[in-house]
Simulated scan of single mutants.
Amino acid sequence: MGHGNQSHRDIAAGVITISDTRSKETDKGGRLVIDYLEEMDITVDAAHYQLVKDDVSSISAAVDQLLEQNVDAVITTGGTGIAPRDVTIEAAGRFFDKALEGFGEIFRMLSYTEDIGSAGILSRAAAGVSGKTVIFILPGSTGAVKLAMEKLIVPELNHVVQELNK
C-alpha cells in the first residue's frame, strides 16, 4: 500500500466499538478499522479490541484502559450522533488534552460532499490528543468509517504519532 516509509517505529492502536446491539461477529465498523490499520502494518492486539455498550462509564473505562497501556492511537466507532444513547463524545472526549477540531470539520465536509449530504450536521465525529495518544471518535456506519480511515486517518496517522513523540 505504501503509506509512508518504514523508518517510523511500530504503532500500537486500540479499537473500541460502541454498540448496544453488535457482537464482535457482527461488528463491521470495528473490523473495517482493524483492516485499514493492518494495511498500514499496524496490528491491533486482541486485548486492544473491545466492544462496549452505549453508556458513559463503559466507554470511559475502555478508553482509560487503552490509555494506561500507552497505545499510540485509540479509534472508536459508534455513538457519535444526537440520539439519547449517543454518548461517545461525552465519554471519550473528556480525555482530550487538545482537541483536533480540523478532523471533525473536514470529516463533516467530506461526509456532506461525498456521502450523506446535509445529514452531515448530525455527526459529532471528533478527534483529540490525550498525552501522547491520539483519539479518533468515528460514527458506526461502514461508510463513515471508510471515509474517515481512507481520507484522514490512514494518510495522517504516522505523522500525528511522530508529532506526539517529538
Rank of each mutant, 00 (worst) to 15 (best):
G4E: 14
N5E: 15
N5R: 12
R9W: 09
R9H: 13
D10W: 09
A12W: 10
A12D: 07
G14K: 00
G14N: 04
I16R: 00
T17S: 13
T17Q: 03
T17E: 04
D20W: 01
D20H: 05
T21W: 06
T21N: 09
R22A: 10
R22L: 09
S23V: 06
S23H: 14
E25A: 13
T26H: 11
T26A: 07
D27V: 05
K28I: 14
G29N: 00
G29M: 08
G30Q: 06
G30L: 06
G30T: 11
L32G: 03
L32Q: 14
I34N: 08
I34T: 12
D35I: 06
D35P: 07
L37R: 00
E38M: 08
E39F: 10
D41E: 13
D45Y: 13
D45P: 12
D45A: 14
A46M: 10
A46Q: 15
A46H: 14
H48E: 11
Q50S: 14
V52G: 02
K53S: 12
D54Y: 06
D55C: 11
I59V: 12
I59A: 03
S60L: 03
A61C: 14
V63Y: 08
D64H: 13
D64G: 13
Q65E: 14
L66M: 08
L66I: 04
N70R: 15
V71Y: 01
V71T: 05
G78C: 03
T80Q: 02
G81Q: 01
P84V: 05
R85L: 03
T88A: 04
I89K: 03
E90L: 08
A92G: 04
G93F: 06
G93I: 07
F96M: 00
F96C: 01
L100T: 05
L100N: 02
F103G: 07
E105M: 10
E105D: 15
I106S: 05
F107A: 04
F107W: 08
F107P: 08
M109C: 13
M109P: 07
M109D: 13
L110S: 07
L110A: 07
L110Y: 12
S111Q: 02
E114L: 13
I116M: 12
I116G: 02
I116W: 02
I116S: 01
I116A: 05
G117R: 02
A119T: 12
I121H: 03
R124E: 00
A126H: 05
A127I: 07
G128L: 00
V129M: 11
S130H: 11
G131Q: 10
T133R: 06
V134H: 09
I135R: 00
F136P: 05
I137V: 07
I137C: 10
G140P: 04
V145E: 07
K146M: 07
A148G: 03
A148D: 01
E150D: 09
L152D: 12
I153S: 02
P155K: 11
E156N: 14
L157W: 03
L157P: 10
N158P: 13
H159C: 10
E163F: 15
L164Y: 09
N165D: 14
K166Q: 15
